Computed example of a mutant assay.
Amino acid sequence: MRFAEFDVLLQQALRRYAALERDGDVAVFDHWRATEADLMRVQRWLGVRLPEQYRGFLLRYGAGRFLFVELLPADEGRRWVETLLGANEAGSGFVAVAPVGTGDYWGFVVHDGICEDAVSFRYHEDGAVEPAADDFLEFVATEGLRVGR
């Protein structure tokens, strides 16, 4: 998926859920944008290169609540919020980017310090990983915006 296509889906979701957010019933989007410095710090700390699409998403839209999915922020200044650095260990072979709420995470499998573009689901019980989406925008459209469900 490309950003132009995702922007259309996002605008549709914003219109659909604007009343809920305006009335204070639901926090729809947090918009905790990352900076280049935040992303460079995460990459250095974890020893990985994050996917370009994911980096672009954090710079453009941010993290936190993104409708139906929580995205871990790169900004370490968030109090009481799990962050990318707090949820991940260098050399683990997986970079968690979104908690499921059960101890499982969505994230990227790492090979030789480079994260796959595809998003995978990792089970906390045994560390098993299964594919979830071909790329990050597809993942957020499906899990966050609930497109195609």
Rank of each mutant, 00 (worst) to 15 (best):
V42I: 09
F139L: 09
F139N: 04
A74T: 04
D7Y: 14
V97T: 11
R49Q: 14
G148R: 15
P99V: 07
F57P: 02
D104H: 05
R78C: 09
P73H: 07
V42L: 02
A4P: 08
F136L: 08
D112P: 03
F94Q: 01
G24I: 12
A37K: 05
R78K: 13
F108H: 13
V119I: 09
Q53I: 15
L14F: 02
A18C: 04
L72R: 10
L14D: 04
R79I: 12
H111C: 07
V129E: 01
A133V: 03
L137I: 13
Q43I: 08
V48W: 06
G91E: 10
Q43S: 13
V147K: 07
A34N: 01
R44K: 15
E89I: 01
G62S: 12
E5I: 11
L39D: 03
F3T: 14
D117P: 04
R41M: 05
E76L: 10
L20V: 08
A63I: 14
D134I: 04
G103R: 12
M1W: 15
Y54M: 05
H31R: 14
G103P: 06
V119D: 02
D126R: 12
R122N: 03
R65C: 07
V109M: 09
V28L: 14
L67S: 00
V42E: 02
A4M: 08
Q12R: 13
A37N: 01
R49E: 12
F6E: 05
G101A: 11
V42P: 00
W106N: 10
A27W: 06
V100S: 12
R146C: 12
P73F: 13
A87E: 05
G107A: 00
G148S: 14
G144S: 07
F139D: 01
M1I: 12
E36I: 09
V28R: 10
P51H: 09
E76R: 08
R41G: 00
Y54A: 04
I114P: 00
E21M: 04
L137A: 10
V119M: 13
L9D: 02
F6H: 03
Y54N: 02
D23L: 15
C115S: 13
R15L: 07
G103T: 07
S92C: 02
R33A: 13
P131F: 02
P99F: 05
A13P: 01
F139E: 04
A13E: 01
V100T: 05
D75I: 02
T142S: 10
D135E: 14
D25L: 15
